[in-house]
């Protein structure tokens, strides 16, 4: 049993979970999207760790990159409106 590897796994997993929680509980869309992109990048790291380089590539490029870009493009438009709704 490789203890180092396990600790690394644990650290990676917890970071991922923490990011997910942060992204999901964010009220500001812009921040949420940025956190989501970060989450995607970290997910790509995890998949790289799990020896799935294809998936790491795809997740980084599509899951984080393009989805993020799509959301970001839209989140910026929505942000002022969202803020005003949120402050109500």
């Amino acid at each position: 049993m490789n203890l180092f590897l396990f600790c690394f796994d644990l650290l990676l997993s917890l970071t991922l979970l923490a990011l997910a929680v942060a992204a999901l509980s964010s009220r500001d869309p812009r921040r949420g999207v940025i956190l989501f992109i970060t989450f995607g990048l970290l997910l790509a790291l995890v998949w790289a760790r799990l020896r799935a380089p294809d998936l790491a590539l795809t997740e980084a490029a599509i899951g984080a990159g393009l989805t993020g870009a799509l959301m970001l493009g839209a989140a910026r438009r929505a942000a002022p409106r969202f803020d005003s709704e949120d402050s109500r």
Binding site: A44, L45, A48, P53, A56
Partner: peptide, 28 residues
């Protein structure tokens, strides 16, 4: 840092292709 992790991991998990992933990270 992600690129760093990937490069290091590439040797740990013995997947050379992770270097490619690192390249994509850089570009992105």
């Amino acid at each position: 840092s992600g690129i760093g992790v990937l490069v290091v991991l590439s040797s740990v998990v013995q997947v050379p292709a992770l270097i490619d992933v690192a390249l994509i990270f850089a570009l992105l």
